[in-house]
């Protein structure tokens, strides 16, 4: 199973959490290598999670935003029993030239669990390469959520009967 298949697959059981500010509670996105009880983002950060099932597995997207600095991180993880394998982070930050991803193109079986990022991930496009989408274009939670749902191919509409 690879990231491309996950993004292209049909998603079911979609659950979107409430938005909160500040520290991300550990059960919301468990990472065994993070020693802190919660990931201590400041109160200027707003976050929520989107959980769904696809290809017989459970996934979670952690969305972290700081609108005043034009920052959005949308991190897709494959949920294990007590840990998460981070597969992709779709991002914009004001200090980068445009929207980009940190991802692995390899099978999820090769991805170590428990860390937000590692040498198994690559940046696309490359840091010095052309970035197609250069503007942030997001100013509220609704727009942020929709951007992430679109990117990961998560549709809230049911299939046509």
């Amino acid at each position: 199973m690879k990231l491309r298949e996950i993004i292209g697959s049909e998603k079911t059981g979609i659950k979107i959490s409430e938005w909160k500010n500040g520290a991300v509670s550990r059960p919301s996105f468990p990472l065994s290598r993070a020693k802190a009880r919660a990931y201590k983002w400041g109160s200027a950060y707003e976050w929520c999670t989107v959980r769904f099932s696809a290809l017989g597995q459970e996934f979670c997207v952690l969305i972290l935003c700081r609108f005043g600095r034009e920052i959005l991180y949308a991190t897709l993880g494959l949920c294990g029993p007590k840990d998460t394998q981070v597969l992709c982070s779709y991002e914009f930050h004001g200090t980068e030239p445009g929207w980009h991803c940190h991802l692995t193109c390899e099978s999820v079986t090769t991805v170590p669990a428990g860390a937000m990022r590692g040498p198994w991930m690559r940046r696309l496009p490359g840091a010095r390469e052309f970035h197609r989408r250069k503007s942030f274009g997001i100013s509220n939670r609704g727009q942020a959520l929709q951007k992430v749902l679109d990117f990961y191919g998560i549709s809230l509409k049911g299939p046509l009967l």
Partner: peptide
Amino acid sequence: GFFVVDDPVYPGLFRLEDDGGTIPFLEACG
């Protein structure tokens, strides 16, 4: 990268700040 922001206490002065993610990100990486 970093941000140049107005100092909230002293008008006319500035602060340099990170994005508030340097330390949380390092912690999330282990």
